Amino acid sequence: MNNTVLNLTKSFGANSSTSMNDTDHAHAESSEEFNSVVLPILYTFVCIVGLLGNGLVIYIMYLKKQSRNITDIYILNLAIADFIFVAMMPVWTTSVALKRWIFGQAICKLASGCTYFHLYASVFFLTAMSVDRFFAVVMHNTIKRTKFNATVLVIIIWMVSTGLGLLPLYFRNVVEHETEGVRKCEWTFESENKSHHNWFIVYFVSRSFVGFVIPTIIIVISYSMIAFFLQTREAKGKLTAQCQDRATRMVLVVTTVFLVCWLPNQFSNFIYFIQSLNLIRAPNPPDLIHYYVHMFTTCLAWIHSCMNPILYAFMREDMRLKLTEIMNKRRCCGDTRR
C-alpha cells in the first residue's frame, strides 16, 4: 500500500461506526456545523434513552431474579452490554463537539475497546436469543434447555467479545494533528507495515463477517424456521391463532429492525474498506456525500442500542406488568409521604 492508502485507512478508521472522529481536514471544514452541532445532539439522545431504557431493563431483571427464565438471562446480559456502550457515549460526544481528543491515551484505548466489545457482545446475545427461541419452539421435544447451559453460553460470549474487542487496545491511539493543532483518537494502521496491513484486513473481516454477516444468517434462519413451524398443522394444533400471530409479528420486528439499523452501516464500511485496499478508486477530494451518509448510518446503528429494551423486553407482557408494578409502588410511596 502507498501513502494514499494510509490516508484512506485513517479516514476509514475515523469514519467507522466504532469511532467518533472527524475525517480529513477537507471534511472537517465542510462539515463543521454538522459535526459540532447535529452529531452531539444525536449522540446525546442515544445516550440518554439508552441509559434509561437499558438501566430499567437491568433493574426489572434484578427484581425478577427469583422467577428469571432462560430468555431473561439473555435479555439481562444484552441490556448490560448496551448499557456499557451508551455509558461511554459522553466521551465520544465530547470529542465530536470539541473536534479534538481531551481524555488521554488510556481513555482512547478503553473507550474504543468498550465500543468494539459491545459491537460483538450485542449481536452475539441477539443470535443466542434467536437460537434459543428456535430450540424452545421447534426443537422442544428433542433439546433440553437449561439455565445452566444458558449461563455457560453467556460467559463464553462475554469472553469471546472481550477477546475480539482487544484489537483497538493496540491500534487505537491519540494522534497529534500538527496542521490543525489538535489531538484525536483514531486508528493507526501504517501502510508501509505489512503486519498492519494484515491486521487491517483482520479488523474488517472480524467486524463485518464475525460481527454481522454470520450472526445475521443464523438469526434469519432461526426465525424463518420458527415462522415456518408456526404455520404447520402440527403447530396449529398446539398454539392458538393469536399466539401464532404474536410470535410471527415478533419475528418480523426483530429481524427487520436489526437489519435496518445495521445493514446500511456495514455496507458503508465495506465501501471504505475496498477503497483503502485500492480495489476501487477513492474520490479526490473525498466525497462529502458519502461522509454524511456514513455518519447517518452510524447513528442508525447506534440507535439499535435504544431499540433493544423495546424490542426484547417491553413487548413482553410480564415486563410491562413489572414496570406498571414499579410505577404504582413509586406513586403509592409519593402519596404516603404527602
Rank of each mutant, 00 (worst) to 15 (best):
I84D: 02
V182C: 00
N278K: 00
L166P: 01
V175P: 10
G165C: 13
A28L: 14
L8Y: 01
M1W: 02
M129G: 12
H25N: 14
N278E: 01
T18L: 13
L277N: 05
L166R: 04
V49R: 04
V257D: 00
V86G: 08
L119P: 01
P264F: 11
S208Q: 15
L6C: 03
F103H: 11
L78D: 00
A313R: 06
V138S: 03
V154I: 07
F83A: 03
F270E: 01
M225R: 05
Q266F: 14
L323S: 11
A150W: 01
N7E: 15
G211S: 02
F103M: 13
C332M: 13
I102M: 12
S224M: 05
M20R: 07
V131L: 13
D82W: 02
M295W: 12
M315H: 03
L110T: 13
M139F: 01
M1Q: 02
Y203F: 14
Y312L: 15
K65E: 15
E186Y: 02
T93V: 13
N173F: 04
G163Q: 07
A26P: 00
K10P: 01
N278H: 01
I73G: 04
L76D: 09
A28F: 09
P90C: 04
S130D: 08
K64Q: 12
Q66T: 00
M20D: 09
I274H: 07
L288D: 07
T232W: 03
G237S: 13
N278Q: 00
F212P: 03
R100S: 15
C108N: 05
M159C: 12
W158D: 06
I217W: 14
V46R: 08
N149V: 05
S95M: 14
V38G: 02
A14F: 00
W92E: 01
F85I: 02
H290E: 09
L259M: 05
N193R: 07
L51C: 04
W262M: 03
K99T: 09
Y116V: 04
K65W: 15
M88T: 15
E180Q: 14
A26H: 10
I218W: 09
M89W: 11
I274G: 07
D318T: 14
Q105P: 00
N2F: 10
T71V: 00
M20P: 03
N15L: 12
W158A: 09
H196N: 10
E180M: 15
N149Q: 12
N173S: 14
L167R: 12
D245Y: 04
N173T: 13
P90D: 05
L300G: 04
K109A: 15
M315Y: 05
T255R: 08
L126V: 10
D287H: 07
M139H: 06
V37C: 06
